[in-house]
């Protein structure tokens, strides 16, 4: 186990040390002490390592992640796991706005609540939020799954493409061109798998599925101002 204390050393040294790990590294377990809300902690990782951050983080933690598992033992600031490609990011507390934005792959788990714009423009990432999500979540979401065990805020899935949204609680309002859809057996399978991976005890049958009504795909004069 490698330990890095941000009270004693700077962030750039930490991130470049983590970037230096490759597929064959023996140093697979890292602990980061005293994050104290610093920005860009454990950004740009690309190795099969597990990093545990012991506290809350600021902007853009675990951004652009590939392969690595990043555990945040507190809450995360704006843009956590932004543009994740693969791997796993787990936040014990809450996530601020645009968590998992533009993510292409991997799994983001928020055990508390996520605020506005969660999964905005997601492109294949899976996101599981144990609590609630804020407004404008999954805006222009293209692919992947957004699973919400609590409630969703205003304008869920506005102008979304082919991402799937599963919400167990209430949805304050749906965004433009987003509608409730039939839950088919294959969706229950996807949900079961994601809930297991995210250590949630919610039942797939308790969720409703939302997705694109596909009316904004092609130019339609009635949609123009």
């Amino acid at each position: 186990m490698q330990t890095f204390d941000l009270a004693d050393s700077d962030l750039r040294t930490l991130n470049s040390t983590l970037h230096a790990q490759n597929d064959d590294t023996n140093q697979t377990a890292w602990t980061i002490e005293n994050p104290k809300g610093a920005h860009a902690i454990a950004c740009g990782l690309d190795a099969p390592i597990e990093v545990t951050i012991k506290g809350s983080t600021g902007y853009y933690s675990a951004g652009m992640n590939q392969q690595a598992t990043v555990n945040i033992k507190g809450s995360a600031g704006p843009g956590v796991a932004e543009n994740m490609m693969s791997g796993k990011v787990v936040i014990d507390g809450d996530a601020s706005q645009y968590a998992g934005a533009t993510g292409h792959g991997g799994l983001l788990v928020v055990k508390g609540n996520a605020s506005s714009r969660c999964g905005i423009s997601m492109k294949g990432i899976n996101i599981v939020v144990h609590g609630n999500i804020g407004h404008m979540s999954a805006f222009m979401a293209q692919s992947g799954n957004l699973v919400v065990c609590g409630d969703a805020g205003d304008a869920l899935g506005d102008s979304c493409y082919e991402a799937r949204m599963f919400v167990r609680g209430s949805v304050k309002s749906l965004g433009a061109d987003c509608e409730e859809k039939e839950m088919r057996p294959e969706h229950l399978e996807i949900l079961k798998d994601l809930l297991e991976q995210a250590e949630s005890d919610a039942k797939p049958e308790e969720f409703k599925r939302y997705g694109s009504a596909r009316n904004l795909y092609n130019f339609n004069i009635d949609n123009a101002y």
């Binding site: 104290k36 809300g37 610093a38 600021g58 809450s75 600031g77 704006p78 601020s96 506005s116 407004h135």
Partner: peptide, 27 residues
């Protein structure tokens, strides 16, 4: 505002209520 893109974090204990644009300010 309703869009809420400007950040805000709050903390409350028995001793105080604190506001910061970022959590860093409260640590």
């Amino acid at each position: 505002d309703p869009i809420a893109c400007k950040p805000a974090v709050m903390a409350e204990t028995d001793q105080y209520v604190a506001f910061g644009s970022e959590y860093r300010a409260l640590v």
